[in-house]
Simulated scan of single mutants.
Amino acid sequence: MTRRTGLIAAILVLVAALLTWWLWPSGSAKPVPRSAAGPYQVQLNVSGGSPHTGDNTVDLDITDQHGTAATPDRVSVEPAMPQMGHALPPSTAAIVTPGHYRATVTLPMPGQWEIAVKLSGAPGSGSATFSVQAN
């Protein structure tokens, strides 16, 4: 009876370990933030994968509500660290291709930052805020 109990316990531990390994999120596939901004959808990508102190290249993919590339007249990014009361001046994102914009965002210190993306033009304007952790 004790031998059987030990065998069952060992099998349960093995199954739990395998399930944990299988369900554990991998670091290689991070979800890409996407948010509605008025009539637009905005997707934010930080080059290099994760934000860091100093200059960061930020790519923005902007579409309309149907997924078609959108080209607002003005796209700007504005980093802020509300916990510390820091806000940096906005910088204008440059168009790379229709629906794809790029800007440089400088994060002067590590911690939780919010990057506000502001868009204006036809068919309207909107803004989206993305939270990022800078190392």
Rank of each mutant, 00 (worst) to 15 (best):
P33D: 11
T97M: 06
G85D: 04
A103K: 01
R4A: 14
G85V: 10
Y101D: 07
T97N: 08
A69H: 11
L14I: 12
T129Y: 01
S125Y: 01
H100M: 07
A37Q: 11
L60R: 05
P89F: 07
V42W: 05
T106S: 14
A17I: 07
V58P: 00
T71S: 15
A37Y: 12
N135K: 14
Q43C: 00
L119C: 06
M1Q: 11
S76P: 01
V132D: 00
A70F: 02
P82M: 12
G49I: 11
P108A: 09
A128T: 01
A17C: 13
S50I: 09
K118E: 03
G49M: 14
L44G: 04
N56D: 09
W113M: 09
V117Y: 02
V96Q: 10
M81Q: 12
H100S: 10
T92H: 03
H52K: 14
S76I: 05
R3Q: 08
L18T: 04
M84G: 01
Q133T: 15
G85M: 12
S47A: 15
R74E: 06
L44D: 04
A10N: 07
L119E: 02
P51G: 07
D64I: 06
A16V: 13
I11S: 14
P33W: 07
A94F: 09
T92I: 13
Y40M: 11
G67T: 05
Y40S: 09
P39H: 08
A70V: 04
V117W: 00
P90D: 04
A36D: 15
S28W: 09
L18F: 07
D64M: 05
L107E: 01
A17L: 13
A16P: 05
S50C: 03
D59N: 14
G38H: 08
R34P: 00
D73P: 03
W21H: 07
P79D: 10
G126K: 01
V15T: 09
E114M: 05
V77D: 03
M84K: 13
R3D: 12
A116I: 02
V58Q: 04
V15L: 15
A103Q: 05
S35P: 02
I62R: 01
S131Y: 02
L23K: 04
G48W: 12
A10I: 12
A69L: 09
T5P: 00
Q133V: 13
P51N: 02
D55H: 08
I11W: 10
